[in-house]
Write a protein that binds this DNA or RNA. Structure first.
Lengths: 144, 144
DNA sequence: ATGGCACACGTTATAGCATAACGCAATTGA
DNA sequence: TCAATTGCGTTATGCTATAACGTGTGCCAT
């Protein structure tokens, strides 16, 4: 009795660890590092970073979690249910606006940006695998 | 005799350490991590990571070096002389295409992408400070 | 049923990336 | 001349991520 468990709330059938990590991220107001997640889950039996990283790898693969490269941290995907996490659909690249003051992250998507970038790639014969777009700055509230 | 030295080849007057780091990056075919740079410069008296990081911070500030967030590594700016490194001009955000096979990096710029992103920011009251765009995938040669 | 496979898990150890905190030396300019 | 600034060097430390090992479980083709 170790493998996937009928998930109470999440999309694909997640394992116990995956559910725990996803729940922590979903509740968070800001991105969390793997080690911060680890600390939050010590009460639930987590002892080592790998337990977190393995869950994060899967959740990222499922599209339920995004990694913020410029922060070395993770957020739950903001596109609820139907839009984002469906298996094979992929609505393209997601962009993030990260407030350096309050830590809040806005996730958005822009087809034009997507097209421009993939046009560039096509023109150069470059085959994109994963695209990162992160804007760091101050959110409206913090810029005031 | 410790401060800036008339630089033999570079743009602003760089210090000795800044020149050494910049030269190593300029000669490199692919991005380098701070520790790789450190190893290359042991012969020149470098002993500690901070010596590298401090030089990288300045070079980045000057616009002569870019940090690749998804790689935790650094590259010399590909825009030669006039275009990129001039003090106050800033031609906007730069994007990178990073080959995961050979490590080669292409630096480019797209006004439309820039505009799209800053329009989004404006509409949300978000004040951008620094924008990261990195496409990882396979370059033409490696995709063949 | 059983042997092989794929996968999640747990643990220990280690690798790789980045900065804090101290003090010294040189430069600048009121 | 004195204070402020900047670069430098050193030691120590902290944060991020993965390697390598072994265990247990479910699946399913033979």
């Amino acid at each position: 009795m170790n493998a996937p468990i009928s998930s109470p709330v999440s999309s694909p059938a997640l394992t116990k660890n995956q559910n725990l990590v996803f729940d922590v991220l979903t509740r968070a107001e800001a991105p969390m590092s793997a080690y911060t997640i680890l600390d939050k889950l010590r009460d639930h039996g987590f002892r080592a970073p790998l337990q977190v990283y393995r869950a994060l790898d899967k959740l990222t693969e499922f599209g339920m979690v995004h990694r913020l490269e410029s922060l070395n941290a993770f957020v739950a995907c903001a596109h609820r249910e139907s839009e984002c996490c469906g298996a094979g659909h992929g609505h393209g690249t997601v962009a993030f606006a990260i407030c350096e003051s309050c830590g809040h992250v806005s996730e958005f998507h822009d087809h034009q940006v997507d097209h421009r970038l993939s046009d560039w790639a096509k023109s150069k014969g470059f085959k994109p695998a994963k695209t990162t777009i992160e804007i760091r700055g101050l959110c409206e509230a913090c810029a005031a």
